[in-house]
Simulated scan of single mutants.
Amino acid sequence: GSSDSNSPSSSPTFWNYSRSMADHAQILRKFQYQLACRSQAPSAHKDEADLSSKQAAEEVWARVTMNRQLLDHMDSWTAKFRNWINDTILVPLVEEMESVSTQLRRMGCPELQIGEASISSLKQAALVKAPLIPTLNALVQYLDLTPNQEYLVERIRELSQGGCMSSFRWNGGGDFKGRKWDTDLPTDSSILMHVFCTYLDSRLPPHPKYPDGKTFTCQHFIQTPDKPDTTNENVFCIYQSSINPPHYELIYECHVYSLPKGRNNMFHTLLMFLYIIKTKESGMLGRVNLGLSGVNVLWIFGE
């Protein structure tokens, strides 16, 4: 094992806290609300679709575990996972954006506001002002997804409100400047996948092979038109096989696991990724423990 000084939890990121289980009791109360808010309108057609989708999911999960009861927990896991993303990544990210914008204004750079400045000028500022605003470089990684910084920052704020990402639209996003979301903007799924990968980039130790710091993204996320090498048994990654509408698959030990399409596809694919880490990789992703001592995400599976 590595010593504490190498552990990602002591790395200089602005997400250096690890939550206790007690903190999560309050989180779970938030969800009961969201699960209860699902539309209750009876629809035979929808029930059939749900059933066939559930059966399809069961077949995929059966290749990973013998535990048949697993799918009964899926709604609860999904809710907890959405909350973990919100509390661990989105809320601190929004706070950091505000903080960095304030620091830049105080330094006499009002043109460099997060959500207004271009990503290239922020990258330049991160190089020049690194000693003065050490978190700017980390922040830029989260924002480096779309040229439309104004939309991205506004949407991250919207998603972080209310605790359980109630505004999340898997195949779309929010209105922007009075017009409906369109495919020139990233989907909410793309935004969440990007911040999830970037967060794990910040928690994995630096790797000489990935000098840009994208240690997790480079090893565990592949997006079309690139394709994963399914003949290499060491490839363990989330593969985005379609951008609009977004669809994700999991590649593990030369198998492709494709969970049903739709609003939960990304969450369920990430849950399967994390479940495999918990059950088959002893909670370790490379040298980092994703359980209590590390990133603290595996608590969502409970016991």
Rank of each mutant, 00 (worst) to 15 (best):
G1Q: 10
S3G: 12
S10W: 13
P12G: 07
T13A: 09
Y17W: 08
R19L: 12
R19F: 13
H24N: 08
H24G: 02
A25H: 12
Q26C: 04
A36P: 05
R38C: 08
S39F: 04
A41V: 13
P42F: 14
P42I: 13
H45N: 12
L51R: 12
S53F: 02
E59W: 07
E59Q: 12
R63N: 14
Q69T: 11
L71A: 03
M74L: 12
S76L: 14
F81W: 05
F81D: 09
R82V: 07
I85S: 01
D87M: 06
D87T: 11
T88W: 01
I89R: 03
L90A: 07
L93K: 02
E95D: 03
E96P: 00
S99R: 05
S99F: 05
T102R: 12
T102H: 09
L104H: 02
R105D: 15
R106Y: 09
Q113T: 03
S118Y: 06
S118N: 10
Q124S: 13
L127K: 09
L127N: 10
L127C: 06
V128H: 09
A130M: 12
Q141K: 14
Y142L: 06
D144W: 08
I156C: 09
E158H: 10
G163Y: 02
S166V: 12
F168C: 06
R169V: 10
G173R: 00
K177E: 11
D182W: 06
D184R: 13
T187S: 05
H207G: 04
H207A: 06
K209D: 15
G213L: 06
T215C: 05
T215P: 00
F216Q: 00
T217H: 01
C218Y: 03
K227H: 10
T231H: 05
N234K: 15
V235C: 06
I243M: 04
N244H: 15
P245V: 11
E249R: 10
L250Y: 04
L250S: 08
E253C: 13
Y257Q: 11
N264I: 07
H268K: 11
H268T: 12
T269L: 05
L271I: 15
F273S: 04
I276M: 03
I277Y: 04
S282N: 15
R287P: 00
V288W: 00
V288S: 02
L298D: 01
I300P: 01
G302N: 14
E303P: 09
